[in-house]
């Protein structure tokens, strides 16, 4: 199953016009036709958000349109999250967040949903999470895995600070990291840390989750 070019164009055009209802309608239609969640995420939502970024870069849309699009996408994600089948007996938990000063939270929100889809309990702390608060909250819920996202390469030092902060209380826990920041590099920074893995997209995330559950 794959999203057709025509459908994608309908979606992105509706998104740029701020037509929330039409965007929800397109996604719901695909959900009802049992399109896999990850296909909807990768081929519709992620692709559209990258295109919105490219259009801003080319000065074809304003920051206001970019924010409008992000708002619609977030509402779609909230809607999809409610549709996911939730297992009553969730054994594993993941704590998801963006590093300090990182305000792009759509990617990590999708990652949390992929964990949920695979029977995990996900705690989503969202954008710009202070390290101290994240570690404090983690001490309360004792997650099995941390998942952290960053969209900008210059946030790598913030990621490293967060890894070190997590390690003060959780010395061996797995930390999954990802996001557009790693588009052109940054793997070598991650490779310096034990039990920190880089996940490129939602497909890799699902594979990673399955290895943990195996």
């Amino acid at each position: 199953m794959t999203i057709t070019t025509e459908t994608y164009h309908q979606f992105i055009n509706s998104l740029l016009l701020g037509d929330r209802n039409q965007c929800h309608h397109i996604i719901n239609e695909h959900w009802e036709k049992q399109f896999p969640l990850l296909i909807i995420y990768e081929e519709m939502i992620k692709k559209a958000m990258y295109e919105v970024g490219d259009l801003w870069e080319a000065n074809k849309i304003s920051v206001a349109t970019e924010h409008l699009s992000s708002g619609i996408i977030e509402s779609i994600l909230n809607d999809l999250q409610l549709k996911l089948k939730h297992s009553a007996n969730k054994k594993n938990t993941v704590l998801t967040a963006c590093v300090e000063n990182e305000f792009h939270q759509i990617g990590i929100k999708m990652i949390g949903d992929v964990f949920e889809k695979n029977g995990w309990k996900s705690y989503f702390l969202g954008a710009n999470t202070p390290n101290r608060e994240l570690v404090k909250f983690a001490s309360l819920i004792q997650p099995d895995v941390f998942a952290v996202s960053l969209s900008i390469y210059s946030h790598l030092p913030a990621l490293e600070k967060l890894i070190l902060a997590i390690r003060t209380k959780f010395p061996k826990h797995l930390i999954a990291v990802g996001g557009q920041a790693f588009r052109h590099g940054g793997e070598e920074t991650i490779a310096q840390y034990e039990n920190v893995v880089l996940l490129q997209d939602t497909f890799h995330t699902e594979k990673f989750i399955k290895t943990l559950s195996a």
């Binding site: 390469y153 210059s154 946030h155 790598l156 030092p157 052109h184 590099g185 940054g186 070598e188 920074t189």
Partner: peptide
């Protein structure tokens, strides 16, 4: 630039 100086790529 600060990120890059810390982890040059």
């Amino acid at each position: 630039m600060a990120s890059l100086m810390a982890n040059f790529n």
